[in-house]
Structure formats: C-alpha cells, structure tokens
Simulated scan of single mutants.
Amino acid sequence: MYKLKDLIGDGSTTFISLLTTKWDEIHEAMDVFRYKIDKLEERIVDGSYLLQLNPDRQSKRRTPEEMNNIFQPFDEKKFNFNKVSPKEILFSIEDEGGNKHTVLINVSPVSRYHSLLCPYVDKCLPQVVTPESLDLAVQIMFLIEDRTVRIGFNSICAFASVNHLHYHFFVEKNILAVEKVKWQNFKEDVYLLDKSFPVPAFCFQVQRHSSTKTLWKVLEYFLKKSIAHNILMTKIRRIGGPEDVVNVIVWPRRNTNGAKKLAAFNVAVLELSGWFPIYDAESFKNLDAKGLEAELLKWVRDDFENICEELKCIL
C-alpha cells in the first residue's frame, strides 16, 4: 500500500514509474493478460485521427456486462474488480482519509500500459461518477508529470463494460485530435469545444488545489437527467492556456441502450477523443476521416442546445 502523497512527480517512486514498471513485469507473464500488446500497427488519418489495429481486443476480451440504466445497481454476483486475480493488481494507494484505491492492469488492453483506477474499491460502488472519485482522478493527474498519460471515464450507457466504479489510464505519445481543438467560452470558467469538432463537449481547466465544483455541477446535471457521458482528462497544454492545469472534456452523448455494436469500433471516450482502436484489418486500412466522423456524429444528442440552455441557468 502506497500513500498517495508520496507518489509525486519528482520522488524516487512516482505514480507513473510504478505503474509502467509493474505493468511490464506482469505483461511478461502469459497467464495474466488475455493477449500481448507489443508494437501496434497505426496510422494517422487526415492529420488528426489516430487509428491502431487491435483485433484481439474484440475477440479475446471479457464479454461486457449488459446495462440499460445509467443508475444500474452494483451486483456482487456479476464480475467486479474485487473478484480479479491478485496477479492483476499493480498496486494500491491510500489517500489522506485512509481510503483504499486500487490500480489494476486491464487484461484486455487497448494499448501498452492501459490500466484501471478503482476508487474506493471495497465499497462496491456502481459505475457512476462521484465528486470524490473525480477529485481523486484529478489529483492523480497532477501527480503525473508525463503528458502522454490520460485518464478516461465511460458512464453506463456510454460503453462502460463493468458496473463497478473505475477510470482508465492510457499512455499515448501522439497528441489526440480533441487536444488540438480550440475552446469557445460558454459561461464564466466553462467552455465548449469549437464547432469544428464532430461531437460537442463541455471543457474545464482545473488548476492545482482548485475546486472541481463547477465540473461536478455539470456531471450532476447529466446524472439527474440520465444523460450518458464520457470524460477525458489530459495535461496536453492548449495553445494560449496555462501550463499547470488538468484539462477535462465531458461529452454528453446518446445512450447506448439497445445500440448495435460495430464490427470496426465502438464509440467511447477514446473514439470521441480521436483515438480509434480498430478491430479488423480491412477497416483499419480503408477508414477515412469522413467515415470516422460519420460514426461519431451518430452519438450527438439532438437536445444538446437544450442542455446548454438549462446548464446556463444552473452554473
């Protein structure tokens, strides 16, 4: 068990060095991961969209849980992160309040170092974002100096596959398409992605030791309205933006209830960010920007303008 405050960027043992070192060690054990992640074939489409060929993720991953309600209760009889093998645990951390949070490998990784943060893992919380877990994820982002690290969250009905509270760690050297997009002011310290991006989103700059209260107000609104959502946290600096911030992008999106899963990819937080793990070689070779954006557009909510108007009254 590590104290969270001890895993700072300039310490002898940092959060990301601990994660990557232990991940590499476990990756050498054939009986833990469902498949190996070495050098994935990739290509950049239209100078922005990152495609990576990973057919094993579709064919060898655990079957995702069927979920149709954004508030679906936790079910201890179904798979959850308290049932994983001890071999899957990278490490556990303890915050100042004595709460335990576990970092696991993702046994069916999107790419190298894809891992899971399971906040308050013993409390058996469903996959519903909470202000405490949000603060924890932001705090960890500030501990990590490496700007190639992102944290993602998929709500229920937004392609979350396990109904046990968790966030994703991703490591990717390429700057993602959404990280290059300009922001437009929405209200006070809340922004919107520029309309040049296919799927609209709300954007926030969280400064070190500052509150996530405004961010939480937006997410709380989504929860009250049962609006599915995806969240990306990144430290890639926006042009003209301050350096020491965590940029948080939140997409309200169409719910996935009854939606047919695609052969090539599903649209969750990575795809909305412009990073597409592709499941078949033909699609990987032939997909173009028009096709990718057409699929993203399918998840834009018809009531986004109404959401904006209601949020202006709340914020």
Rank of each mutant, 00 (worst) to 15 (best):
M1W: 00
M1I: 05
Y2G: 01
G9L: 04
D10K: 10
G11P: 04
T14G: 15
F15G: 01
F15P: 06
S17N: 10
D24V: 06
H27M: 03
Y35G: 01
I37N: 04
D38G: 11
R43T: 05
I44C: 08
G47Q: 12
Y49E: 13
L51R: 02
P55I: 04
Q58L: 03
Q58A: 05
S59R: 07
R62V: 02
P64N: 00
E66A: 09
P73H: 00
F74M: 02
D75I: 14
N82R: 03
V84D: 05
V84S: 02
E96A: 04
K100T: 12
T102E: 02
L104W: 01
N106T: 05
S108M: 04
S111P: 00
V121I: 13
L125I: 12
Q127Y: 08
V128H: 00
S133Q: 10
V138T: 15
Q139H: 06
Q139F: 07
E145L: 08
T148D: 07
I151K: 13
S155E: 04
I156Y: 02
F159W: 14
H166G: 14
F169T: 11
F169Y: 10
K173R: 14
K173M: 13
A177K: 08
A177T: 05
K180S: 08
W183D: 12
K187R: 11
K187L: 11
D189M: 09
Y191I: 12
F204M: 02
Q207C: 09
R208M: 11
S210D: 03
W216L: 06
L219M: 10
F222D: 01
L223Q: 12
K224N: 14
L232Y: 11
I236E: 15
R237W: 06
I239C: 15
G240R: 09
G240W: 05
P242Q: 00
E243G: 14
V250M: 13
A259I: 09
V267R: 02
L272F: 10
G274Y: 01
F276M: 15
Y279L: 00
E282G: 15
L287H: 00
K290C: 03
L297Y: 13
W299Q: 13
V300A: 08
D302P: 02
D302I: 03
F304C: 11
E305M: 15
I307N: 04
I307K: 07
E309S: 09
E310P: 04
C313L: 15
I314R: 14
I314S: 10
I314P: 04
